[in-house]
Design a protein around this nucleic acid. Structure first.
Lengths: 166, 166
DNA sequence: TCCTAACAGTTGACGCTACAACCATACAGC
DNA sequence: GCTGTATGGTTGTAGCGTCAACTGTTAGGA
């Protein structure tokens, strides 16, 4: 742990700001979605991923990879979503260890209802403050960090129509 | 909520990657600090802010602003840190509503012990994946978003020696 | 075939955060 | 000086995420 593990001034300045954003943003997203749709951001994200999947169905493991969540976390969340009627779970015919999660009609309606407000919030909180050039830079930067942070998570980035099927 | 509240493709690609990073990074930081120093990232951040303050002392409200935390959250965290001997609370002489939090000697030692490993982790997870040019871009982007997200939080950015007094 | 290891998922307990309610102090207007 | 309001902070509760433990299933060898 020698000298060159320290951050230089530029890195430090970038990190302090990034850390503050990371601290504030999730709360803002949760708060808007909770107020307008009764969903947490992560719950919305789960529903959105299902809404884009073939048959609106995904195996829990795959859904976990797409949402960069641990399996226990996803299991709890999906149980709560199932209790509310947005998702249905069924054993996977091919592999009896696995569980398929399917978006119900009510879940589909919920995503479509929540999507516009959520998109608008993301745009307002992040992109209204950035130039088009900075949006490109952000995509590159976040992509590099993500690939470096968890190669598995790169899968998530292929899902571009994240907003629930506009 | 009309058409122009949607995100365009560039924005969507940037956002999906950023969201994934935001989901993964906090866990990684907590996990390293917890393993190596028995602290959560937010606890470390609180101790670090105190370590940089005059007299290693700050009022709760000011500390909350620096750490972009709500007052209830900070109150709970500081109580736990006090139980562990890292922080001491005392009524503020000037304003009897207020409470001053002071870093103890043990807290100072703890920050100094944890700082190198934490800095190295931040560098490894984020900056090793970026060019110097991208570090500048990230600082600008995060700064803009932060200023737009919560003007109060801009205060946090002035604290550059975030790592606990290297 | 049997036996082991890996995989898929669920559950329960514990810890942290958000929210609301609350108390005490300070301050401003009259 | 009194009253109303804003400020500073703490506490209790409910809800979500993590971790460890566990069940059931599949696959790979001897």
């Amino acid at each position: 742990m020698d000298q060159d593990s320290w951050l230089d001034d530029d890195q430090l300045a970038a990190w302090v700001r990034l850390a503050a954003v990371m601290e504030l943003l999730p709360g803002e997203l949760d708060s808007q979605l909770r107020r307008d749709a009764g969903l947490l951001h992560f719950e919305y994200f789960v529903l959105a991923m299902l809404s884009e999947a073939p048959e609106r169905t995904l195996r829990m493991t795959e859904l976990a990879a797409l949402t960069t969540a641990t399996l226990p976390r996803l299991s709890h969340v999906v149980r709560r979503l199932e209790d509310r009627g947005y998702v249905r779970r069924a054993p996977c015919p091919g592999d009896r260890r696995a569980t398929n999660a399917t978006l119900t009609e009510a879940g589909w309606e919920k995503v479509r209802e929540a999507a516009p407000g959520h998109s608008a919030t993301v745009r307002r909180l992040i992109f209204d403050a950035l130039t088009p050039r900075q949006v490109d830079q952000l995509r590159e930067i976040a992509g590099s960090v993500l690939g470096h942070l968890d190669p598995r998570a790169d899968k998530a980035a292929v899902y571009t129509r994240y907003d629930g099927g506009r």
